[in-house]
């Protein structure tokens, strides 16, 4: 697939919006439709769009962290959210809430959702990048200026 100027310009606008929207969906999930899973999917599709516009190499660089690290930390955070109640004598996985000054409620279910979010982003991106490394021509292989096609 070749680099498309239209897609690149659009991606520059859309990707930040999609990431914001994914975080919004994740936080909204507590009381209304949404949640970590769906938010994570939107977040992952933001990076997938970026990869379609600029190639997976740039998308990996834009994410900073390795998707596998995201997966691990996601599961880790979810596990921690399940373990926190044990320290206060409540049963495993019990949802605990605390109210911050100002009326903001924070609790272990939100922590769990963040974990799910990270896990879903990580897992989806691992699959997508893996397909690209495998030679499925979903993503552009040229570099940013579109002059020298890379080998592979």
């Amino acid at each position: 697939m070749r680099l498309s100027l239209i897609l690149r310009t659009a991606a520059r606008l859309l990707v930040p919006l999609m990431i914001l929207f994914s975080v919004f969906l994740m936080l909204r999930g507590h009381n209304e439709a949404g949640g970590g899973f769906i938010g994570g999917l939107v977040g992952a599709s933001a990076f997938a769009l970026y990869a379609m516009a600029y190639g997976t190499k740039d998308a990996r660089r834009a994410l900073y962290a390795d998707p596998r690290t995201l997966m691990a930390s996601g599961v880790g955070i979810a596990l921690v959210s399940a373990l926190i109640p044990l320290f206060s004598g409540a049963p495993f996985f019990k949802g605990l809430w605390t109210t911050l000054p100002g009326g903001l409620k924070l609790g272990t279910p939100i922590l769990f959702d963040i974990g799910v979010y990270l896990l879903v982003v990580g897992m989806t991106l691992v699959v997508i990048y893996e397909l690209d490394d495998d030679g499925l021509s979903l993503f552009p292989r040229e570099n940013r200026r579109g002059t020298t096609p890379s080998s592979s």
């Binding site: 897992m123 699959v127 397909l131 030679g135």
Partner: peptide
């Protein structure tokens, strides 16, 4: 659905790999 999503992603990659 979530489980099915994961399994579907895996089996598609598997079939693709097998094809390659």
């Amino acid at each position: 659905i979530v489980i099915g999503f994961g399994l579907l992603a895996f089996s598609l990659v598997l079939v693709y790999r097998a094809y390659r």
